[in-house]
Nucleic acid binder design. Structure first.
Lengths: 203, 203
DNA sequence: TATAAATTTGACCGTTTGGTTAAACCTGTT
DNA sequence: AACAGGTTTAACCAAACGGTCAAATTTATA
């Protein structure tokens, strides 16, 4: 019972995740999810009462998955440069395994900003901020990184790894015309991105 | 007649653009567009036969608007560094005036890659590529920019200006917590981005 | 094996959706 | 003023949608 129960709920959840990632909240169809899970449509409502509740479950699981991946960056006792290299290696690899996540998250957040607020309210951004500042206080001085520049730098670092996945459709089409492999581009990007950022930061 | 005709069609087109930008193809409602245009729903189908055709008209107009903005970068007779500064100033200003475009384009392309193919087929990317290479042949050598690195560099340059708008919802929420103004961040970014990229490229 | 509870289903419901149609309404022409 | 053309509308339609429900089926318990 509990064995099979979990199984059914998991199958539904995975089917729902697949459908929502592919089509978004608005484009997703309950019947499609039922078909993918190989069950009756009514059973969806038995486990997840409404489409909205089902979507929230999927969305929060994905958000959690992403956030948990960022935590190690703040724990590692590495130099700033090592940390940048570590981040891009880990983050791009993660996105290679989950290529549909960026576009999904960006779209759904723009569509419904309230959802993000709930996820973001669970994490204390100030503590991360301070931790990072303490860990690298001397390096920040050495690189001439002022407090005002940090938002610019952080968002730039994120943009370089996330954007290729968010704009994947465009990139793949352009690369095809130029006879470039998107997969190779991503592999190269792990090192390129780190080199690029580190060089830009050095005095 | 022809006066009024154009007016009505334009009013509908603008209402449709607004609705599609806000809710995307799947989320948009014909009734909403009719309401925004202040006309009957049937009139939408009189001018644009189907929702799909209407969306295509809006999408292609927006794509054209974006692409036409990129052309000057390839015409200007500026040094590479000047061109990078010119690009970020112009491009971020353009996105400030049209902040919903990136999220819209990225989402719809991921949802339906075929649409992009039609738009992209109209432009000759190789000619832009070659033009840029000719204009800056000596500089590319001086900066040690090999042909293999160009895709990495070009996508990085684009990522830095587009991503803040694609992830606007996240950034605004984070910035609010940190007491940072998103508008000021964008103004600063025009210069920061250019400085960042130029420094990263220099030997 | 009998019973109760949880699980799964097919059939169904009300609403919303994109789209259609026939009639009314302008507007310029003769 | 009568006609013809394009334009606009109210009313309507079939399909698709998320969701419900009572009945059937499986599973756990005694």
């Amino acid at each position: 019972m509990s064995e099979n129960d979990k199984l059914t709920e998991e199958i539904i959840f995975e089917a729902a995740t697949d459908e929502f990632l592919d089509r978004g909240m608005d484009g997703a169809r309950m019947q499609n999810i039922a078909d993918k899970a190989g069950i009756n449509k009514a059973l969806l409502h038995y486990y997840y009462r409404t489409k909205d509740k089902m979507f929230n479950a999927v969305f929060e699981k994905i958000a959690e998955k992403i956030l948990s991946r960022f935590a190690p960056v703040f724990d590692e006792t590495l130099t700033l440069e090592e940390k940048i290299r570590f981040f891009y290696r880990e983050h791009i690899t993660f996105l290679q395994d989950n290529p549909r996540l960026p576009a999904f998250i960006l779209n759904e957040i723009n569509r419904n900003p309230a959802r993000l607020r709930r996820v973001l309210s669970t994490i204390d951004i100030h503590s991360f901020w301070n931790k990072l500042e303490e860990q690298h206080r001397d390096e920040l001085v050495r690189y001439n990184i002022t407090k005002e520049k940090i938002p610019q730098i952080m968002t730039t670092i994120a943009a370089i790894s996330v954007f290729p996945f968010a704009a994947r459709g465009i990139f793949e089409e352009l690369f095809k015309k130029l006879d470039i492999s998107f997969d190779e581009y991503l592999e190269e990007r792990k090192e390129f991105a780190a080199d690029f950022v580190i060089k830009a930061l050095r005095k």
